[in-house]
Design a protein around this nucleic acid. Structure first.
Length: 436
DNA sequence: GCGATCAGCT
DNA sequence: CACAGCTGATCGC
Protein backbone atom coordinates (compact mmCIF):
# COMPACT_ATOMS: atom_id res chain seq x y z
CA UNK A 1 0.00 0.00 0.00
CA UNK A 2 1.15 3.46 -0.79
CA UNK A 3 2.17 5.38 2.29
CA UNK A 4 0.57 8.72 3.04
CA UNK A 5 1.30 11.59 5.33
CA UNK A 6 -1.62 13.63 6.48
CA UNK A 7 -5.39 13.29 6.32
CA UNK A 8 -7.82 16.06 7.12
CA UNK A 9 -11.38 15.02 7.95
CA UNK A 10 -10.66 11.69 6.31
CA UNK A 11 -10.31 8.55 8.32
CA UNK A 12 -9.25 5.79 5.98
CA UNK A 13 -6.00 3.95 6.48
CA UNK A 14 -2.63 5.04 5.21
CA UNK A 15 -1.79 8.36 6.85
CA UNK A 16 0.71 9.03 9.62
CA UNK A 17 -1.33 11.77 11.29
CA UNK A 18 -4.96 12.82 11.15
CA UNK A 19 -6.59 16.22 11.56
CA UNK A 20 -10.19 16.98 12.50
CA UNK A 21 -11.59 20.44 11.71
CA UNK A 22 -14.77 20.12 13.79
CA UNK A 23 -17.15 17.59 15.24
CA UNK A 24 -20.06 17.63 12.79
CA UNK A 25 -21.01 14.15 11.65
CA UNK A 26 -20.22 14.69 7.97
CA UNK A 27 -16.59 15.32 8.93
CA UNK A 28 -16.26 12.35 11.25
CA UNK A 29 -17.52 9.59 8.96
CA UNK A 30 -15.20 6.68 9.63
CA UNK A 31 -14.10 7.92 13.04
CA UNK A 32 -15.22 5.86 15.99
CA UNK A 33 -14.51 5.20 19.64
CA UNK A 34 -12.27 2.29 18.64
CA UNK A 35 -10.01 4.46 16.47
CA UNK A 36 -6.36 3.41 16.51
CA UNK A 37 -4.89 4.52 13.19
CA UNK A 38 -2.71 7.29 14.58
CA UNK A 39 -2.52 10.64 16.38
CA UNK A 40 -5.55 12.88 15.87
CA UNK A 41 -5.01 16.64 15.97
CA UNK A 42 -7.81 19.06 16.79
CA UNK A 43 -8.57 22.30 18.62
CA UNK A 44 -8.88 22.49 22.40
CA UNK A 45 -12.65 22.90 22.30
CA UNK A 46 -13.05 19.95 19.94
CA UNK A 47 -10.88 17.87 22.28
CA UNK A 48 -13.10 18.83 25.18
CA UNK A 49 -16.24 17.79 23.32
CA UNK A 50 -14.63 14.71 21.82
CA UNK A 51 -15.37 12.17 24.59
CA UNK A 52 -19.02 13.15 24.50
CA UNK A 53 -19.27 12.14 20.87
CA UNK A 54 -16.83 9.24 21.04
CA UNK A 55 -16.97 7.76 24.55
CA UNK A 56 -14.14 5.34 25.18
CA UNK A 57 -11.87 6.97 22.59
CA UNK A 58 -8.23 6.47 23.48
CA UNK A 59 -7.48 9.99 24.67
CA UNK A 60 -3.73 9.45 24.44
CA UNK A 61 -4.17 9.72 20.66
CA UNK A 62 -5.65 13.23 20.86
CA UNK A 63 -3.28 16.14 20.20
CA UNK A 64 -4.49 19.63 20.97
CA UNK A 65 -3.35 22.42 18.67
CA UNK A 66 -3.48 25.90 20.18
CA UNK A 67 -5.01 28.41 17.82
CA UNK A 68 -2.52 30.77 16.22
CA UNK A 69 0.60 28.80 17.14
CA UNK A 70 2.85 26.89 14.79
CA UNK A 71 3.36 23.27 15.71
CA UNK A 72 6.06 21.03 14.28
CA UNK A 73 5.33 17.42 13.52
CA UNK A 74 7.97 14.88 12.53
CA UNK A 75 6.89 12.54 9.77
CA UNK A 76 8.40 10.23 7.23
CA UNK A 77 8.46 11.53 3.69
CA UNK A 78 6.35 9.31 1.44
CA UNK A 79 8.57 10.18 -1.53
CA UNK A 80 12.08 9.84 -0.09
CA UNK A 81 11.44 7.72 2.99
CA UNK A 82 13.53 10.06 5.15
CA UNK A 83 12.42 12.16 8.11
CA UNK A 84 10.66 15.37 7.32
CA UNK A 85 8.99 18.13 9.30
CA UNK A 86 5.52 19.51 8.76
CA UNK A 87 4.46 22.75 10.40
CA UNK A 88 0.80 23.38 11.04
CA UNK A 89 -1.27 26.20 12.46
CA UNK A 90 -4.92 26.03 13.52
CA UNK A 91 -7.01 29.15 12.90
CA UNK A 92 -10.52 29.88 14.17
CA UNK A 93 -13.02 29.03 11.43
CA UNK A 94 -15.97 30.48 13.38
CA UNK A 95 -18.28 27.77 12.04
CA UNK A 96 -19.28 25.92 15.20
CA UNK A 97 -17.58 25.54 18.59
CA UNK A 98 -14.08 24.19 18.13
CA UNK A 99 -14.06 24.55 14.33
CA UNK A 100 -10.68 25.45 12.87
CA UNK A 101 -8.88 25.68 9.54
CA UNK A 102 -5.40 24.22 9.15
CA UNK A 103 -2.47 25.87 7.42
CA UNK A 104 0.27 23.37 6.57
CA UNK A 105 3.87 23.87 5.49
CA UNK A 106 6.04 20.97 4.47
CA UNK A 107 7.97 19.39 1.66
CA UNK A 108 4.73 19.34 -0.31
CA UNK A 109 4.56 23.13 -0.14
CA UNK A 110 2.02 25.28 1.63
CA UNK A 111 -1.63 24.32 1.83
CA UNK A 112 -4.70 25.58 3.59
CA UNK A 113 -7.67 23.41 4.48
CA UNK A 114 -10.55 25.60 5.61
CA UNK A 115 -12.97 22.95 6.83
CA UNK A 116 -16.35 24.60 7.16
CA UNK A 117 -16.01 28.28 7.95
CA UNK A 118 -17.82 31.58 8.15
CA UNK A 119 -15.90 34.82 8.16
CA UNK A 120 -18.27 37.76 7.93
CA UNK A 121 -16.74 41.08 6.83
CA UNK A 122 -17.40 42.88 10.10
CA UNK A 123 -17.17 40.04 12.60
CA UNK A 124 -14.47 40.51 15.25
CA UNK A 125 -13.45 36.87 15.41
CA UNK A 126 -13.26 36.75 11.62
CA UNK A 127 -11.07 39.86 11.61
CA UNK A 128 -8.71 38.22 14.09
CA UNK A 129 -8.71 35.09 11.94
CA UNK A 130 -7.95 37.06 8.79
CA UNK A 131 -4.96 38.84 10.27
CA UNK A 132 -3.73 35.60 11.86
CA UNK A 133 -3.93 33.84 8.51
CA UNK A 134 -2.39 36.76 6.66
CA UNK A 135 0.55 36.87 9.05
CA UNK A 136 0.97 33.11 9.01
CA UNK A 137 1.12 32.99 5.23
CA UNK A 138 3.59 35.89 5.21
CA UNK A 139 5.59 36.06 2.01
CA UNK A 140 4.88 32.44 1.23
CA UNK A 141 2.24 31.44 -1.27
CA UNK A 142 -0.53 28.94 -0.69
CA UNK A 143 -0.05 26.21 -3.27
CA UNK A 144 -3.45 24.70 -2.76
CA UNK A 145 -6.55 25.87 -0.97
CA UNK A 146 -9.13 23.32 0.11
CA UNK A 147 -12.19 25.51 0.34
CA UNK A 148 -15.60 25.30 2.03
CA UNK A 149 -17.61 25.67 -1.18
CA UNK A 150 -21.00 24.90 0.40
CA UNK A 151 -22.47 28.16 -0.88
CA UNK A 152 -20.17 28.65 -3.85
CA UNK A 153 -22.83 30.09 -6.11
CA UNK A 154 -23.82 33.76 -6.51
CA UNK A 155 -27.42 32.89 -5.73
CA UNK A 156 -26.37 32.28 -2.13
CA UNK A 157 -26.49 35.69 -0.58
CA UNK A 158 -27.45 36.26 3.03
CA UNK A 159 -26.68 38.66 5.87
CA UNK A 160 -24.27 38.28 8.76
CA UNK A 161 -25.30 36.10 11.67
CA UNK A 162 -25.51 39.25 13.78
CA UNK A 163 -28.21 40.65 11.49
CA UNK A 164 -29.99 37.30 11.21
CA UNK A 165 -29.99 36.92 15.01
CA UNK A 166 -31.75 40.27 15.28
CA UNK A 167 -34.32 39.03 12.80
CA UNK A 168 -34.95 36.00 14.98
CA UNK A 169 -35.39 38.20 18.04
CA UNK A 170 -37.88 40.34 16.11
CA UNK A 171 -39.92 37.29 15.14
CA UNK A 172 -40.01 36.08 18.75
CA UNK A 173 -40.83 39.52 20.14
CA UNK A 174 -43.68 39.92 17.67
CA UNK A 175 -45.25 36.70 18.95
CA UNK A 176 -45.41 37.46 22.70
CA UNK A 177 -48.04 34.84 23.43
CA UNK A 178 -46.62 32.04 21.34
CA UNK A 179 -44.35 29.19 22.23
CA UNK A 180 -41.28 29.22 20.01
CA UNK A 181 -39.34 26.25 18.70
CA UNK A 182 -36.02 26.68 16.92
CA UNK A 183 -34.44 23.83 14.94
CA UNK A 184 -30.75 23.26 15.68
CA UNK A 185 -28.14 20.48 15.44
CA UNK A 186 -26.03 18.87 18.12
CA UNK A 187 -23.37 21.53 17.70
CA UNK A 188 -23.59 25.05 16.28
CA UNK A 189 -25.90 28.10 16.48
CA UNK A 190 -24.97 28.70 20.14
CA UNK A 191 -24.31 32.38 19.44
CA UNK A 192 -27.84 32.75 18.10
CA UNK A 193 -29.35 31.21 21.23
CA UNK A 194 -27.12 33.31 23.51
CA UNK A 195 -28.21 36.44 21.66
CA UNK A 196 -31.89 35.56 22.09
CA UNK A 197 -31.41 34.77 25.78
CA UNK A 198 -29.54 38.02 26.42
CA UNK A 199 -31.78 40.40 24.49
CA UNK A 200 -35.11 38.89 25.54
CA UNK A 201 -33.85 38.03 29.03
CA UNK A 202 -35.14 34.51 28.99
CA UNK A 203 -33.78 31.03 29.37
CA UNK A 204 -33.87 28.60 26.47
CA UNK A 205 -34.96 25.01 26.70
CA UNK A 206 -32.71 22.40 25.14
CA UNK A 207 -32.87 18.60 25.22
CA UNK A 208 -30.78 16.90 27.92
CA UNK A 209 -27.80 15.88 25.75
CA UNK A 210 -27.64 19.37 24.34
CA UNK A 211 -27.58 20.83 27.85
CA UNK A 212 -24.52 18.71 28.60
CA UNK A 213 -22.82 20.15 25.53
CA UNK A 214 -23.77 23.69 26.61
CA UNK A 215 -22.20 23.00 30.00
CA UNK A 216 -19.04 21.63 28.39
CA UNK A 217 -18.88 24.84 26.36
CA UNK A 218 -19.07 26.84 29.58
CA UNK A 219 -22.63 28.13 29.24
CA UNK A 220 -24.32 27.84 32.61
CA UNK A 221 -27.62 29.30 33.83
CA UNK A 222 -28.76 30.22 30.31
CA UNK A 223 -30.19 26.91 29.15
CA UNK A 224 -32.65 24.66 30.91
CA UNK A 225 -34.35 21.32 30.42
CA UNK A 226 -37.39 22.39 32.43
CA UNK A 227 -40.21 23.18 30.06
CA UNK A 228 -41.95 25.48 32.55
CA UNK A 229 -39.07 27.94 32.68
CA UNK A 230 -39.36 29.39 29.18
CA UNK A 231 -41.48 29.63 26.06
CA UNK A 232 -38.45 29.30 23.76
CA UNK A 233 -37.20 25.83 22.96
CA UNK A 234 -34.29 24.78 20.77
CA UNK A 235 -35.14 21.36 19.37
CA UNK A 236 -33.25 18.89 17.18
CA UNK A 237 -33.65 19.84 13.58
CA UNK A 238 -34.66 16.32 12.59
CA UNK A 239 -37.69 16.60 14.87
CA UNK A 240 -38.72 19.87 13.25
CA UNK A 241 -41.34 19.51 10.54
CA UNK A 242 -44.62 20.92 9.37
CA UNK A 243 -46.33 17.94 11.00
CA UNK A 244 -44.62 18.68 14.31
CA UNK A 245 -45.66 22.32 14.27
CA UNK A 246 -49.23 21.48 13.36
CA UNK A 247 -49.27 18.97 16.18
CA UNK A 248 -47.95 21.48 18.69
CA UNK A 249 -50.56 24.02 17.63
CA UNK A 250 -53.34 21.69 18.71
CA UNK A 251 -52.10 22.25 22.27
CA UNK A 252 -50.75 25.81 22.27
CA UNK A 253 -50.10 28.56 19.73
CA UNK A 254 -46.56 27.80 18.58
CA UNK A 255 -44.30 29.03 15.82
CA UNK A 256 -41.19 27.36 14.47
CA UNK A 257 -38.06 29.20 13.41
CA UNK A 258 -35.59 27.55 11.09
CA UNK A 259 -32.18 29.24 10.96
CA UNK A 260 -30.62 28.29 7.64
CA UNK A 261 -28.53 29.55 4.78
CA UNK A 262 -30.70 27.62 2.39
CA UNK A 263 -33.88 29.11 1.01
CA UNK A 264 -35.74 25.86 1.60
CA UNK A 265 -35.55 24.03 4.85
CA UNK A 266 -38.63 22.12 5.79
CA UNK A 267 -39.89 19.38 3.58
CA UNK A 268 -43.34 20.40 2.42
CA UNK A 269 -46.20 17.95 2.73
CA UNK A 270 -47.33 16.33 -0.49
CA UNK A 271 -49.68 18.70 -2.26
CA UNK A 272 -48.63 21.70 -0.19
CA UNK A 273 -48.54 24.76 -2.37
CA UNK A 274 -45.68 26.60 -0.72
CA UNK A 275 -47.24 29.94 -1.23
CA UNK A 276 -44.89 31.65 1.19
CA UNK A 277 -41.46 32.84 0.31
CA UNK A 278 -39.05 31.01 -1.89
CA UNK A 279 -40.30 27.51 -2.33
CA UNK A 280 -38.29 24.56 -3.57
CA UNK A 281 -40.11 24.72 -6.87
CA UNK A 282 -39.43 28.40 -7.36
CA UNK A 283 -35.79 27.81 -6.56
CA UNK A 284 -35.68 25.12 -9.18
CA UNK A 285 -37.33 27.46 -11.59
CA UNK A 286 -34.72 30.10 -10.91
CA UNK A 287 -32.03 27.48 -11.20
CA UNK A 288 -32.95 26.85 -14.79
CA UNK A 289 -32.05 30.39 -15.80
CA UNK A 290 -29.15 30.81 -18.18
CA UNK A 291 -25.69 31.56 -16.86
CA UNK A 292 -26.13 35.16 -17.92
CA UNK A 293 -29.43 35.47 -16.10
CA UNK A 294 -27.81 33.85 -13.09
CA UNK A 295 -25.12 36.49 -13.00
CA UNK A 296 -27.75 39.20 -13.27
CA UNK A 297 -29.71 37.62 -10.46
CA UNK A 298 -26.57 37.57 -8.38
CA UNK A 299 -26.01 41.28 -8.89
CA UNK A 300 -29.54 41.87 -7.68
CA UNK A 301 -28.87 39.66 -4.71
CA UNK A 302 -25.83 41.72 -3.85
CA UNK A 303 -27.95 44.81 -3.63
CA UNK A 304 -30.43 43.20 -1.32
CA UNK A 305 -27.64 41.57 0.67
CA UNK A 306 -29.83 40.97 3.69
CA UNK A 307 -32.24 38.28 2.65
CA UNK A 308 -35.27 38.65 4.85
CA UNK A 309 -37.16 36.37 7.15
CA UNK A 310 -39.54 34.25 5.13
CA UNK A 311 -42.78 32.83 6.29
CA UNK A 312 -42.57 29.35 4.92
CA UNK A 313 -45.77 28.01 6.38
CA UNK A 314 -48.58 29.19 8.64
CA UNK A 315 -46.43 28.27 11.65
CA UNK A 316 -42.89 28.34 10.27
CA UNK A 317 -40.42 31.12 9.62
CA UNK A 318 -37.04 30.65 8.00
CA UNK A 319 -34.25 33.04 8.90
CA UNK A 320 -31.06 33.31 6.82
CA UNK A 321 -28.74 32.43 9.71
CA UNK A 322 -25.84 30.43 8.31
CA UNK A 323 -22.66 28.99 9.77
CA UNK A 324 -21.16 28.78 6.27
CA UNK A 325 -19.80 31.72 4.32
CA UNK A 326 -22.05 33.18 1.65
CA UNK A 327 -20.77 33.56 -1.90
CA UNK A 328 -19.33 37.05 -1.41
CA UNK A 329 -17.52 35.98 1.76
CA UNK A 330 -15.99 32.98 -0.02
CA UNK A 331 -14.87 35.30 -2.79
CA UNK A 332 -13.23 37.71 -0.33
CA UNK A 333 -11.53 34.75 1.31
CA UNK A 334 -10.06 33.53 -1.97
CA UNK A 335 -8.83 37.07 -2.70
CA UNK A 336 -7.15 37.16 0.70
CA UNK A 337 -5.43 33.80 0.30
CA UNK A 338 -4.57 34.12 -3.41
CA UNK A 339 -3.84 30.43 -3.76
CA UNK A 340 -2.10 28.91 -6.74
CA UNK A 341 -4.81 26.32 -6.97
CA UNK A 342 -7.94 25.32 -5.12
CA UNK A 343 -10.43 22.57 -4.64
CA UNK A 344 -13.85 22.45 -3.02
CA UNK A 345 -14.26 20.20 -0.01
CA UNK A 346 -18.01 19.75 -0.43
CA UNK A 347 -19.56 17.69 -3.19
CA UNK A 348 -23.28 18.25 -2.95
CA UNK A 349 -25.74 16.01 -4.64
CA UNK A 350 -27.56 19.07 -5.87
CA UNK A 351 -25.32 21.97 -6.62
CA UNK A 352 -21.63 21.16 -6.52
CA UNK A 353 -19.79 23.88 -8.33
CA UNK A 354 -16.04 23.69 -8.70
CA UNK A 355 -14.75 26.89 -7.06
CA UNK A 356 -12.51 27.33 -10.10
CA UNK A 357 -15.58 28.19 -12.13
CA UNK A 358 -16.23 31.41 -10.23
CA UNK A 359 -12.85 32.07 -8.66
CA UNK A 360 -10.35 30.65 -11.14
CA UNK A 361 -9.49 34.19 -12.24
CA UNK A 362 -8.49 35.05 -8.66
CA UNK A 363 -5.75 32.45 -8.56
CA UNK A 364 -2.14 33.50 -8.25
CA UNK A 365 -0.67 33.56 -11.73
CA UNK A 366 0.24 30.04 -12.63
CA UNK A 367 0.42 28.88 -16.19
CA UNK A 368 -0.79 25.38 -15.59
CA UNK A 369 -3.79 26.33 -13.50
CA UNK A 370 -4.71 29.21 -15.80
CA UNK A 371 -4.69 26.79 -18.67
CA UNK A 372 -6.82 24.35 -16.76
CA UNK A 373 -9.20 27.09 -15.76
CA UNK A 374 -9.52 28.18 -19.38
CA UNK A 375 -10.15 24.65 -20.55
CA UNK A 376 -12.71 24.32 -17.85
CA UNK A 377 -14.64 27.36 -18.99
CA UNK A 378 -14.37 26.58 -22.68
CA UNK A 379 -15.10 22.92 -22.73
CA UNK A 380 -17.32 22.74 -19.73
CA UNK A 381 -18.53 19.40 -18.50
CA UNK A 382 -15.98 17.20 -20.10
CA UNK A 383 -13.05 19.01 -18.56
CA UNK A 384 -14.58 19.16 -15.10
CA UNK A 385 -13.20 15.73 -14.43
CA UNK A 386 -9.81 16.83 -15.68
CA UNK A 387 -9.72 19.79 -13.35
CA UNK A 388 -10.89 17.65 -10.48
CA UNK A 389 -8.15 15.17 -11.10
CA UNK A 390 -5.36 17.63 -11.73
CA UNK A 391 -6.17 19.90 -8.86
CA UNK A 392 -6.37 17.23 -6.24
CA UNK A 393 -3.75 15.73 -4.02
CA UNK A 394 -6.13 12.89 -3.44
CA UNK A 395 -4.69 9.63 -4.55
CA UNK A 396 -7.03 7.04 -3.19
CA UNK A 397 -7.72 5.07 -6.34
CA UNK A 398 -10.68 3.18 -5.01
CA UNK A 399 -12.34 6.33 -3.72
CA UNK A 400 -11.75 8.03 -7.02
CA UNK A 401 -13.23 5.12 -8.92
CA UNK A 402 -16.19 5.16 -6.58
CA UNK A 403 -16.69 8.88 -7.20
CA UNK A 404 -16.54 8.37 -10.94
CA UNK A 405 -19.13 5.66 -10.80
CA UNK A 406 -21.43 7.88 -8.84
CA UNK A 407 -20.78 11.05 -10.78
CA UNK A 408 -22.37 12.29 -13.92
CA UNK A 409 -22.11 15.65 -15.58
CA UNK A 410 -25.09 17.93 -15.55
CA UNK A 411 -25.86 21.42 -16.68
CA UNK A 412 -27.72 22.92 -13.76
CA UNK A 413 -27.79 26.59 -12.88
CA UNK A 414 -26.56 27.34 -16.37
CA UNK A 415 -23.09 26.24 -15.37
CA UNK A 416 -21.39 22.96 -15.79
CA UNK A 417 -21.48 21.16 -12.54
CA UNK A 418 -20.48 17.74 -11.54
CA UNK A 419 -23.64 16.24 -10.23
CA UNK A 420 -23.50 13.32 -7.87
CA UNK A 421 -26.38 11.00 -8.35
CA UNK A 422 -26.54 9.67 -4.83
CA UNK A 423 -28.68 11.40 -2.28
CA UNK A 424 -26.18 11.93 0.48
CA UNK A 425 -23.85 14.86 0.63
CA UNK A 426 -20.21 13.94 0.39
CA UNK A 427 -17.46 15.62 2.31
CA UNK A 428 -14.21 14.99 0.54
CA UNK A 429 -11.61 15.49 3.20
CA UNK A 430 -8.07 15.52 1.95
CA UNK A 431 -5.20 13.13 1.92
CA UNK A 432 -1.83 14.61 1.23
CA UNK A 433 0.61 12.24 -0.34
CA UNK A 434 2.99 14.20 -2.44
CA UNK A 435 3.37 17.40 -4.37
CA UNK A 436 1.17 17.37 -7.42
C1' DG B 1 -24.60 -9.15 21.38
C1' DC B 2 -21.71 -5.55 19.06
C1' DG B 3 -20.02 -2.37 15.68
C1' DA B 4 -20.11 -0.91 10.92
C1' DT B 5 -22.76 0.30 7.05
C1' DC B 6 -26.70 1.56 4.59
C1' DA B 7 -31.64 2.91 3.48
C1' DG B 8 -34.97 6.04 4.50
C1' DC B 9 -36.39 10.04 6.41
C1' DT B 10 -36.48 14.81 8.33
C1' DC C 1 -33.44 19.42 -3.13
C1' DA C 2 -30.44 18.60 2.51
C1' DC C 3 -26.48 23.46 6.26
C1' DA C 4 -26.52 17.90 9.47
C1' DG C 5 -28.37 14.14 11.77
C1' DC C 6 -31.63 10.43 13.53
C1' DT C 7 -33.66 5.61 13.42
C1' DG C 8 -33.92 1.07 12.13
C1' DA C 9 -32.53 -2.98 9.16
C1' DT C 10 -28.94 -5.82 7.91
C1' DC C 11 -24.46 -8.00 7.87
C1' DG C 12 -20.17 -9.85 9.57
C1' DC C 13 -17.90 -11.02 13.53
Amino acid sequence: MEKGMISVDRWSEGSQVYFLTHLHADHTNGLSSTWKRGPLFCSRITAKLFPFKFPGFKLSLLRVLEIGQWHSISLVSPTTGSDTTVNVMAIDAHHCPGAVMYLFRGEFGCMLYTGDFRWEPTNTRAQIGRSMLHNAIGNDKVDILYLDNTYCNPSYSFPSREVAAKQVVDVIASHPDHDIVIGIDSLGKEDLLLHIARVLKMKIWVWPERLQIMHLLGFHDIFTTKISQTRVRAVPRYSFSIDTLEGLNIMRPTIGIMPSGLPWVVRPLAGNNNIFGLSPSSFHHRSKLSAKAQRFACIQNLNEDSRAVEKYHEYIYTVPYSDHSCFEEIKEFVKLVQPTNMKGIVASSFSYVDPLYYFGHLLRVNLQSKRLSKNFERKGGESVEAVHTKSTLENDRSAEARMKRKTREGDLLGVHVSRVSILRRIRCGAKILELD
